[in-house]
Amino acid sequence: MTVLEFMLILGAALFCLGLYGVLARRNAVLVLMSIELMLNAVNVHLIAFARYVIGTEAIAHVLIIFVITIAAAEVGLALAIVLRMFRNWETVNLDRISTLQQ
């Protein structure tokens, strides 16, 4: 197994664990953490491609910077929504929340 394949399998494992968390978790904050895992899995893939595959060298680095930026924006906004939900319903259980209205 080459280092590239190792990194790709590692990223796939991280992505699938994050996907499992998104699908199976009930707490909205835990779902957000799982989404962060998935974003990181994508970054692991990108850095592996940047180092070992022809034609992706610096572009992948730029993409990683953008992914990190968007992840920061996303987590701030999503947690604001979670706090708003908690204030309206006193719960962050996603199975009990079906609308964003009060």
Binding site: A24, R25, R26, N27, A28, V29, L30, L32, M33, E36, A71, A72, V75, G76, L79, V82, L83, F86, E90, T91, V92, N93, L94, D95
Partner: peptide, 24 residues
């Protein structure tokens, strides 16, 4: 940043049901 913000959110959303199973 992100871990600290997540921890803040956890502390601000401490519901009484927190001890329940977290999986659906």
């Amino acid at each position: 940043a992100i871990t600290i913000v997540l921890l803040f959110a956890i502390m601000l959303t401490r519901a009484p049901e927190q001890t329940n199973v977290q999986d659906n």
